[in-house]
């Protein structure tokens, strides 16, 4: 039951099918990675799970601890414990990070209950220190004028504060230099544990040197075509994707 389960998922944007029968289980306590070429549908999968309105699910299901989330609004899914670290986090002018995260936490409380401000800031500062985020960060507007590294650190900070039960990290390594990559990875690793399942979507093996996955899946044309352990990532880095696709093609034929 404690699994984020994607069952034979089909989805399209307009008339164009993007996901064509994708199945994947991410149990709590594990970190899975999805790799694949550009255009394989990796980021689309992340958005569909989160409930992006541009996509239509045409078949299959996504179950969070056994409960189907497909009919739910994006915010309901989020409050249920699903977190998406965006590849391109949006700017929200005039809304400070502190207020944004506070509003997100407040949204999780029952009506009439107020978030305790002192506790909140204590926790926020502790998480910021752990992520090596400077204190003045909190008074800046969400993602406005941030460098690529700052945006990703801000995503991980939000994840640390919201404590999701499942997190999807979409190309979290994109736009990061090696130092930022190390900090962000350390942040993600610090959050690993028995109470969270993670799905790391990446284009490059590099990220998986720092966030070592329990399982690696190869995605192509809207499906998972191959799965393996962490060594699969190294092999893909060395040999490319062609061999997987050929193998899968042969199996399908």
């Amino acid at each position: 039951m404690s699994t984020l389960s994607i069952r034979d998922l089909h989805a399209s944007i307009g008339d164009k099918p993007i996901l064509k029968g994708l199945t994947l289980d991410i149990p709590k306590g594990e970190v899975h990675a999805i790799m694949g070429k550009n255009g394989a549908g990796k980021s689309t999968l992340a958005k569909i799970m989160a409930g992006h309105p541009d996509y239509t699910v045409t078949g299959g299901d996504v179950l969070l601890d056994g409960e189907s989330i497909l009919g739910m609004e994006p915010d309901v899914r989020a409050r249920l414990g699903l977190f998406l670290a965006f590849q391109y986090p949006m700017e929200i002018p005039g809304v400070t990070i502190a207020n944004f995260i506070r509003a997100a936490l407040q949204a999780r409380l029952p009506e009439g209950q107020e978030l305790e401000a002192v506790d909140y800031y204590q926790k926020l500062y502790a998480k910021m220190d752990a992520l090596e985020v400077p204190r003045n960060f909190t008074s800046r507007s969400v993602n406005e004028g941030f460098s690529g590294g700052e945006k990703k650190r801000c995503e991980i900070l939000q994840m640390a504060m919201l404590e999701p039960s499942y997190a999807v990290l979409d190309e979290t390594d994109s736009g990061l230099d090696i130092d930022a990559l190390k900090i962000v990875s350390a942040g993600v690793n610090a959050l690993r544990g028995p109470n969270i399942g993670m799905l790391v979507i990446t284009h490059y093996q590099r990220l998986l040197d720092y966030i070592v996955p329990d399982k690696v899946h190869v995605m192509s044309e809207g499906r998972i075509i191959h799965s393996g352990d962490k060594d699969l990532a190294l092999k893909l880095e060395a040999e490319g994707y062609d061999w997987v696709e050929k193998e899968f093609g042969a199996k399908a034929a």
Partner: peptide, 19 residues
């Protein structure tokens, strides 16, 4: 922007209001 904020758990109305 609204999707981003909703993904953090804010309802659509709350997201609008915040923006």
């Amino acid at each position: 922007q609204i999707f981003y904020m909703q993904q953090r758990g804010l309802s659509e109305g709350a997201a609008m209001s915040l923006a």
